[in-house]
Amino acid sequence: MLRDYAFILIFSAIALSVPILGLSIAWLLRPKKPGKIKNATYECGLETFGETWVQFKVQYYIYALIFVIFDIETVFLYPWAVAYNKLGLFALVEMFIFIAILVVGLLYAWRTDALEWV
């Protein structure tokens, strides 16, 4: 079994070397003429307006949070699905309860407008 993961390791080493190799060859081949105006931050061709940071909305955080919760739910779903043929009908009921409890959470988020983008 570890042999499979050794393959993954070798594969990821080679996959990582593809962009590195490509970028090294490009670095050798391309012209290098930096200039002050060329290297300025791009903002549709205008000068940068205001500071370079923006106050971000809490909404991003809430989406990531709901994602964490549902991600953990799917982690519980996979072993259940794999072992499903060996388990009885009771396993379906148990999983139904599990999902129902989390759907309550999703409904709460929905009704309190936590899922709105605004």
Partner: peptide, 14 residues
């Protein structure tokens, strides 16, 4: 109980 735990975390964080 884990599912209840996750529910509590979700509602609390929201």
């Amino acid at each position: 109980v884990a599912s209840v735990f996750l529910l509590v975390a979700l509602i609390g964080a929201i």
